[in-house]
Design a protein around this nucleic acid. Structure first.
Length: 293
DNA sequence: CGCATCCCCTGCCTGC
DNA sequence: TGCAGGCAGGGGATGC
């Protein structure tokens, strides 16, 4: 599921029920997701207050009252669903009375205020990692992450610097979380189409003083910012797994111009090409060879 | 180092 | 109808 817009959508759904609330109970239904849960994961979380829920790239980061942090990643198929539980029941008593667990409901949080937050992840590429106080910035999962594409630091000049000398195709460079953090397969394809840039073009050709390179990176920076902003406003893209925390679907998938549209006419005005699919770095790329150069 | 390939896991869709 | 194969939004480990 989740690229930056989907993760941000989940963050916005979870923040109102988590921030300022205590975790009255935590339950894990298996020993691992992508990684094994750390020892005493449940005990270390239970009773803690969540001060804030942040997002960095495709990670959610809960700041806990103890100074520790809980890093959450949704992998490919992870989702959170929030339900309001009967407030007359005793917190923590849901072990007996829990409503039916669906398949792949791996983690269940219950807040003192009566929200139940269920993490469901069929493929289990997601994970939850507890980080000691003060160790967040240096954590290996986060330390190497690149620039946030919706931050003020992201602009054509950043692309100029990051892509200088890179022989890798634009598709691969944009997927590289060490350069720009948060883009995934869908939004890379969409941004490249909007910018009129070929996914196969060497990333380094967007660097340097030449006017054409400067125009190209200007278009790319704008396209990335636009597509992500629009997708966040739409609640993300719901292909098969992503849903908002209230169960409703995002609708940005209806705005895709190229992703999963092989054979369709190119939506660029005046371009009479069609969308083709190719495989780059083992993953599908969708583009129009006519208007993406 | 930079880049490509493979792998983790389950579900769904297609074609035979 | 059943089954095999391919494919899926993630990232990490490996090998060249």
């Amino acid at each position: 599921m989740p690229e930056l817009p989907e993760v941000e959508t989940v963050r916005r759904g979870l923040a109102p029920v988590l921030e300022g609330q205590r975790l009255a109970s935590v339950r894990i239904n298996r020993p691992n997701l992508r990684f094994p849960f750390v020892p005493r994961f449940v005990e270390r979380l239970t009773g803690q207050r969540v001060d804030r829920l942040n997002r960095r790239a495709k990670y959610l980061i809960a700041d806990l009252g103890s100074g520790e942090h809980l890093i959450l990643h949704l992998g490919m198929s992870g989702r959170f669903v929030v339900e309001q539980i009967d407030e007359t029941r005793q917190p923590g008593a849901f072990h007996q009375a829990i409503p039916r667990l669906a398949a792949h409901d791996h983690v269940v949080f219950e807040t003192a205020a009566g929200a139940r937050i269920v993490y469901n992840d069929p493929r289990r590429f997601g994970f939850m990692v507890l980080v000691e106080a003060g160790a967040l910035c240096d954590h290996p999962l986060l330390a190497g992450l690149g620039i946030e594409p919706l931050s003020n630091d992201f602009h054509a000049g950043a692309i100029d610097r990051l892509f200088a000398g890179k022989a890798a195709p634009l598709k691969a460079a944009l997927l590289d979380q060490r350069l720009i953090a948060g883009l995934g397969n869908i939004y890379v394809c969409e941004a490249l189409h909007r910018a009129g840039l070929s996914p196969a073009r060497p990333a380094g050709t967007l660097s340097g003083a030449r006017r054409r390179a400067a125009c190209a990176r200007e278009r790319l920076a704008g396209a990335i910012r636009d597509v992500l902003t629009e997708a966040v406003a739409a609640g993300g893209s719901s292909i098969s797994d992503h849903a908002r925390t209230d169960g409703s679907l995002g609708y940005f998938q209806h705005a895709f111009r190229v992703y999963d549209r092989e054979g369709a006419p190119c939506p660029t005005p005046g371009c009479h090409g069609h969308i083709q699919r190719q495989v780059q770095s083992g993953r599908s790329t969708f583009s129009c060879i006519r208007c993406q150069k």
